[in-house]
Design a protein around this nucleic acid. Structure first.
Lengths: 334, 334
DNA sequence: CGGTCAGCTGTAACCGGTTACATGAACCGC
DNA sequence: GCGGTTCATGTAACCGGTTACAGCTGACCG
């Protein structure tokens, strides 16, 4: 474990020169630089991250806080962010709260102890104290996907409303009139935006919104399953359903299967968030794909810019894409 | 950003006492402890992670190096490891190489710069220099899933051979005789073990191994697709196929579909590694599920034990489970 | 009642880079 | 040829906790 002093001694220069040489600063002679590099190489010198972080006053680690790493959407965000961060020689710490308040509290501590040079977060906003702690942290903060109420920070998101409006429009174009939505919690801005797009699609079709077909407050497979089961049990069940996100879709899919119904013959299905196996489901599921990887990159980008001193960063809105497969069809009784 | 000196001043004690009080050491009077805690709370004091890491000579960050975070298997490993690490107040840095040698090189640096108190790695072993660098790092190393040739470190893995032998045995019990395997690279120990189990299943059935049905060296969806396409194009194609891992399975599935064949009528399919959407594929895919989350926890556990000073840690072998769904059936022509 | 020891707290060096400032040399122009 | 620059490098303080060691106090013992 050679230190900078060893390198300085071997190269016959001071530690300051070593630092400068290794940073490839212009003020160092090519000759000196070579000497230092040779010495460093010979000693297998690697500067201590901790020492550097301490003396520079900031770390080279970015943090990403997501509800669930195993969810492929967040995994892709993480991948994108990690890649962009790596390009600037930053590490990425990914923390999944796993909906665990204790974990959230630990994360708050790491925010304040300087572990992170900056933090990107997608929080479910379940924990008020966590939310407020985010605002008081040392480094900059950016939000991904959704903005919890009252949190002021740049946001990277998708144009939820527009893409939903367009995609749900497909249902009406196919002749559906009984179009349902399994939506998320009412206080999620993403849910609101997608719901708004959904309503607009009804309007575009010149039809009044069938409020009874909007099921609020669902998250996860369980939520999707429950909601879909209820929809299908209605006296006049919907013939087309739009699902708020990937997990909800999976739950809904299971419910449809459990009810012995066929897609798209009995019900058409549209998912928000694509999954790698959707093409293999029977039938392949039509989905709105968010550019998760790009969102991750953008989040890292914003963070890096703020760390570099830029301020007044605007939200970034990326386009989502409708991926047409086979889960949409005309209604049976048309 | 209050520092320890501020706390010491406010509490009317020395910095040493503050450290000791916050660590809840026995040698500090309850009264002093209370004073210090009060002062720390009043100043919102959070010790700097960098300063602590520097003075203690080790960080509180574990590293996990995987080929691909987006692969749900690795994501689950990460989740398990992060959870166990968090219990001991360790962070987890997850790095996905994304099969990118440059990224691998960066990781090597982080290994040496003390960012990590310990590292768990699943490497594809593509990069020799990376592999050798792993051995020379500062902190302890554990391996997950597979051990690259020549790397000595505790390993957390599944009993590949046994579970494969049992699961593939199902094919023979159903009456198949033309049983194929899409295997991984020959130098993967996991591929060897699964292959060995595969061969044992043939032997258990009292049949000679049909070597022409073993396709070596495949990874990823592309690999699976190619291999399956070739198998199906054989003059006498197999009636049952065992896939080496999850991505290979996905590729194989696509190839089967592209060939217009039905599972399990035309081909039976068995996957190594389960995926959350396998139950929704048509037909639901029978798979061998590795306890990925538990493997992650075990990896963290090993690392923590080595950090705590334990030595001579043995490999951990966890059981995998066959999850029977509907992709196995009797051969058509029996 | 002095000595010893244990128990609690303080002092200050230390971890290993970074960087503001100092230094010294070379070079410039007048 | 001398003050003023510029440029390359050195010096040493500093980042903020940690910890070895020292010091002080009070209790207990002979």
């Amino acid at each position: 474990m050679a230190g900078i002093r060893d390198v300085a001694r071997l190269a016959g220069v001071s530690t300051a020169t070593v630092t400068r040489a290794l940073r490839d600063e212009a003020s160092v002679t090519a000759e000196t630089k070579a000497k230092v590099l040779a010495a460093a190489a010979r000693l297998d010198y690697v500067p201590s991250a901790a020492a550097r972080a301490l003396s520079q006053g900031r770390s080279s680690v970015l943090g990403l806080f997501v509800p669930d790493i195993v969810n492929p959407f967040y995994a892709s965000v993480a991948q994108g962010m990690a890649d962009r961060a790596a390009e600037e020689r930053y590490q990425l710490v990914i923390a999944g709260s796993h909906l665990n308040p204790e974990r959230e509290r630990q994360m708050v501590t790491s925010l304040h102890d300087g572990t992170f040079a900056g933090l990107a977060a997608t929080t479910l906003g379940t924990d008020e104290s966590f939310r407020s702690a985010l605002t008081g942290q040392r480094g900059p903060l950016v939000l991904v996907d959704r903005r919890p109420r009252g949190l002021h920070a740049p946001l990277v998101r998708t144009d939820n409303r527009k893409v939903t409006r367009d995609a749900v429009g497909e249902f009406f174009r196919l002749g559906h009139t009984k179009v349902a939505m399994i939506s998320g919690p009412r206080d999620f801005d993403t849910a609101c935006q997608r719901l708004s797009g959904f309503r607009l699609a009804y309007r575009d079709a010149g039809l009044p919104v069938r409020e009874e077909y909007i099921s609020h407050g669902h998250l996860g497979e369980d939520g999707g399953h429950r909601a879909m089961t209820q929809l299908l049990a209605m006296p006049e069940p919907p013939t087309a359903v739009f699902c708020f996100n990937n997990l909800v879709t999976v739950g809904a899919l299971m419910a449809i299967r459990a009810a012995g119904l066929k897609i798209p013959t009995d019900v058409s299905l549209l998912a928000f968030d694509d999954m790698s196996l959707f093409p293999l489901v029977e039938p392949p599921i039509t989905a709105i794909a968010q550019p998760a990887y790009e969102m991750g990159r953008a989040a890292a980008e914003l963070l890096l810019r703020r760390i570099a001193g830029e301020t007044d960063l605007a939200d970034i809105v990326l386009p989502a894409t409708l991926i047409t497969r086979e889960s949409l069809g005309p209604p049976l009784s048309v």
